[in-house]
Every structure is written in structure tokens, then in C-alpha cells.
């Protein structure tokens, strides 16, 4: 495996009228690693993937996929690339085998080689015994698996997976996450977008956090957690107006940040054991009742909160 980055993104920009969807995004993805783009809906992840798939032409910047420029060598990019789109992109009135055969042809496979690869992919996605059923009759999870299978047909060096676990059952989700790890083990480079923090944390060698079209942080999971100084997040629910108590909590030693959204107050602290009694004490002084407490050790959710002041789920 050479040192050339599998994906090299340089100041990528895309606007739709006044909407600046992607604003100068740059990052590298090494060969054979899983890189996750993490961010809420509308952060610009899909637009970035679309540009890297040559579906959208950037307003500015460039990117290279296995050395092929998305601006000047789109055919070269497409030949080394497998794309798993966010939406199911299959012909529901064709069987799984017919779908895979058709898409295989679009990737240039023919004859016995095509047939062999279709059978192999059917084994990988675990649908060989139901290969001759129309995709329209499949469950959501099965469709997702075929959707991924299509991108594997031509054994691409790089695979993009745009939120592949949206709207599926836990079992199918687990299968997909396992298959992503398998792809990495087989030497593929995976660019994975998600708004599920747990997925990014579990799968990724490197993570890029996107918000409002910008890459606001990039690194390994550990590196990112260090950004919030190994702080713990305490989520509290109050039974009344929390604005006064929040001011008191902000003044407590060991509290670095207090924020509130949708009735949930989040407090970033260095040591939850030391700070928690003071939080209750201050609330009692103002006759505010704390109805629930959730202590969260440092994670990507906290990183996002630290960087944007908002929870990732929003």
C-alpha cells in the first residue's frame, strides 16, 4: 500500500445560490482506513460526498481519489470508486441478482467474471438464497444490504457510504457495521458519513466533524476527545425555569460550560464526583428541583457540544 492518500480533499467549496453548503473543506484519508464524516443533518456531508463522487462540480477547490482529480479525471475517479448512496438506489421490479448483474455491467464486468462476482457479493450480503426475489419485496434492511452490495461488485479501492444505517432495524445495522469493518480488513478505504456518534466512534480510524458546511475538527477519536479536555458531560432535567440556576452553576469551580436546549441542561465538568453535589446545592437554594441526571464520560457528542454549543442530535 503506497503512501499516496486514498482521498485528498483540498479547499472544496459548493454553493446553491445563497446557500453555502460546503465552505472550504480539506482533509486526507489514508489508504485502507475508515474515515467518518460526522455531523448533523444539513452539515454538508452528502454534498461533500456528491462532489467526491463527481455528481456535483465544486465551485472551488479540488479532490483526488487514488490520484485521480475529480475535476479533470472523473472517469478515473469513478473506476476506483464504489458509492453507497444515502437513499436506496435499486430497481425494485428487478430481482437482487438482476440488479447486481445490471450494475456490474455498468462497472464494466461481463460474462463469467460478472456472474462470479454477483454470486460472491450475494454471499457477502447474505442474500444468495433470496437472490431471485424482486427487491421490492425485501425488507428495508435487506434492501440496504443489496444497496451496499452494488458498490462492492467491481472491488473498488475506495468506497463511499453515505449514512447507510438510516432507518433500519438494529440487527441490520449491526450487519452493516460489521461489513464495513470487513471491507477495511480486505484493504478498502472507506469514507463513511453518519450523524450517529456511536457509529463514528466504533468504526473510524479518523473522524472529521462537519457543521454548517465547514470541517470544524478532524483527527482520531482520542484526539477529538482531548479537545474538550477529557471533560465529563452532566445532562440534567429541571422542573422550572433554569436560567438563574445555570448562572450559579457556571460560577462553580470545575464547571467549564453550561448550556441548555429543549429543557435539558448540559454541564461540562472536569470531575463529576466533585461538582455534582454543588449543582444540587445551588438548585436547592433557588428551590429548583432536579428531576433527572445523566452523567456522560467524554465522547464525540461532547466534542460536538464543545465546538458548536449544540448537541449533535440537533
Amino acid at each position: 500500500m503506497s503512501d499516496v492518500p486514498a482521498i485528498e480533499v483540498l479547499d472544496l467549496q459548493k454553493s446553491f445560490g445563497e446557500n453555502h453548503a460546503v465552505q472550504g473543506v480539506s482533509f486526507d484519508v489514508k489508504q485502507g482506513e475508515i474515515f467518518s464524516l460526522l455531523g448533523p443533518n444539513g452539515a454538508g456531508k452528502t454534498t461533500t460526498i456528491s462532489m467526491l463522487s463527481c455528481l456535483l462540480r465544486p465551485n472551488n477547490g479540488d479532490a483526488r481519489v487514488m490520484g485521480h482529480s475529480i475535476r479533470s479525471d472523473s472517469t478515473g475517479v469513478k473506476s476506483v470508486l464504489g458509492v453507497v448512496p444515502q437513499d436506496i438506489a435499486l430497481y425494485e421490479d428487478l430481482t437482487a441478482r438482476e440488479n447486481l448483474s445490471f450494475w456490474g455491467k455498468m462497472y464494466g464486468l461481463r460474462g463469467s467474471k460478472l456472474k462470479l462476482r454477483v454470486d460472491e457479493v450475494l454471499d457477502v450480503i447474505g442474500l444468495r438464497d433470496r437472490a431471485n426475489e424482486r427487491v421490492g419485496k425485501y425488507s428495508g434492511g435487506m434492501k440496504r444490504r443489496v444497496n451496499i452490495g452494488v458498490a462492492l461488485l467491481h472491488k473498488p479501492k475506495v468506497i463511499y457510504m453515505d449514512e447507510p444505517t438510516v432507518g433500519i432495524d438494529p440487527q441490520s445495522r449491526r450487519n452493516i457495521l460489521d461489513s464495513v469493518v470487513k471491507l477495511k480488513d480486505e484493504g478498502m478505504t472507506v469514507l463513511y458519513t453518519t450523524h450517529y456518534m456511536e457509529e463514528a466512534q466504533e468504526l473510524s480510524d479518523h473522524i472529521g466533524i462537519m457543521d454548517h458546511g465547514k470541517l470544524i475538527a478532524c483527527g482520531t477519536g482520542e484526539e477529538l476527545v482531548k479537545l474538550v479536555g477529557q471533560q465529563t458531560r452532566i445532562d440534567l432535567t429541571l422542573n422550572g425555569d433554569g436560567s438563574n440556576v445555570m448562572q450559579m452553576w457556571q460560577a462553580i469551580d470545575g464547571v467549564s460550560r453550561v448550556s441548555a436546549e429543549d429543557g435539558l441542561v448540559s454541564v461540562l465538568v472536569a470531575d463529576s464526583n466533585l461538582v455534582l453535589p454543588h449543582l444540587f446545592e445551588a438548585a436547592a437554594q433557588l428551590s429548583i428541583r432536579i428531576t433527572s441526571v445523566d452523567i456522560r464520560e467524554p465522547n464525540l457528542e461532547a466534542v460536538f457540544l464543545h465546538l458548536t454549543g449544540r448537541a449533535l442530535r440537533d
Binding site: K78, S79, L81, P85, A89, E92, W103, Y107, G108
Partner: peptide, 11 residues
């Protein structure tokens, strides 16, 4: 049905 954009991602 999103199959046309996917076709455009193939070579």
C-alpha cells in the same frame, strides 16, 4: 428513485 444519480457515479 435515485438510480439515475447512482448511474452517474459509475464509469
Amino acid at each position: 428513485e435515485h438510480t439515475l444519480p447512482r448511474l452517474f457515479t459509475t464509469p
